[in-house]
Amino acid sequence: MSLATFSTRLFPTMRSQAMARFATPSSSFARFYGTKKYTEEHEWIDIDNGIATIGITDHAQGSLGEIVYVQSADLKDVEKGDTIGSVESVKAASDIYAPVSGKVIEVNEDVAANPSLLNDNPEGEGWLCKIQLSSDADVSNLLSEEAYKKLVEAQH
């Protein structure tokens, strides 16, 4: 059991970034995965020290159009594939699926208040939530940037 999961269990009701910072080993700790990965569901996932930051890709926001509503994830344990909120345009709603198993430890309150962040900067300021990976989290089928680009091209 990593320190991170242990801490979360000790303080199950603690939320957000403070918790994440507390639980995350110091910056000298090696980054396990430094680069951004993608999913077939048009999400990006950036894993750093066992914590995955998740958002939708630029391609996804372009396809959705103007995003006017974001339903944030609940701070709780999730299984890969679970619905963890939605992003919505006037015309359509799209579910967000957990790309990995773990615990949602933080949601981006800024995008809920200002959904246009998702159009303006989907892969930066417009991140959606952070998931602390479970010890057995499966990250093997995440796509590289190159593989994701190919997927997008193939869909056009």
Partner: peptide, 17 residues
Amino acid sequence: MLSALRFAKSIPTVTVA
């Protein structure tokens, strides 16, 4: 996400991409 691409369980009108 973009259930759009994966018809959402609870939202039949989902679109996108």
